[in-house]
Amino acid sequence: MIRKMDSSPIRLRNCSKTYGDGTIAVGPVDIEIAAGETVVILGPSGCGKTTTLRMMAGLEMPDPGGHVLFGADDVTRLPIEKRNVGMVFQSYALFPNLDVLENIAYGLRVRGIGLAERSARAREMMGMMRLEPFAERRIDQLSGGQKQRVALARALAIQPRALLLDEALTALDAKLRDTLRTEIDVLLRRLGITTVYVTHDQEEAMSLGDRIIVMDRGKIVQIGSPREIYHRPGCRFVAEFVGTMNRLPGEVRDGQFVTKSGRIPCRHLDPDCREVMFRPESVTIADPAECDLTGRVAATFFLGDRTRLVVDGIGDQPVIVESESAGEFVVDQIVHLKVRSAAVHAF
């Protein structure tokens, strides 16, 4: 039932976007996406990620000098209706005057495909998305998750060269988002379609992307696999934007990072480093004898598989610790912490 789709690699070459009032939404960026790859563009709102996606789609024209390539074709001047891209919008943008089947068949209808064939192909898409019972439903009779699947089916029905999703899961509640994310991920991999997914949700980016492009203030700040982005953030922005980071002020002395409440052995730090960062899971509760830092528990949160501790008295801000130990912690208890020195970052 599911055929591999014939999809294109996408390349943005020197693409920037300046708006009429002079604001630069996207600085010159170069992006290469291989055929069949799933890439997530991640960044805070206003970082230019949606504009970048819209340049790929053909909804925005890059400033002169920029080029958008689908495989060998330069599509820079091609409007979106000629590009054959599937697009899923944050609000789903389903046509309220058409029912589910008509929505999915719309792209085939404007291509002049006859009623019988387009219904058959739309029904095939509905089968793939488990939407058969809803064919004649009106759009306002669908739940959020169903709308999302209709939007995806509609975009895929035209057998696009690439699938572009703009914050496509943001409007759904957390649990549904998880389910759909898995569903979409499996589907896209089976279809082998080039997919670009824009989101501000780093958790979503981690789970969906083969590669993540992190953007900030119109520029690309890091490109890498989810693991690289998480474990080896290339700059302070990425470190703070992706996941939780503890910040600790201090100074380097004799291969150790000295803070007011202890010292962390760290050979790889720059001598004039004044601040280090580390993730909550890089900290363990240790014996007083071999600990690096000592603090006082300010709050504890039981998370089921682990316990999150908020520890005061170490730096300016409380340090967040995630401990898998089964032990119980109480507020005001003194804890001794050990930081995995390989996981200490400094920028």
């Binding site: 789609a57 909804l59 209706e81 891209v85 943008a93 046509f95 719309y106 404007v110 509609r154």
Partner: peptide, 8 residues
Amino acid sequence: EAARSLGA
């Protein structure tokens, strides 16, 4: 935009 992306 959705209609255009579908080729309209």
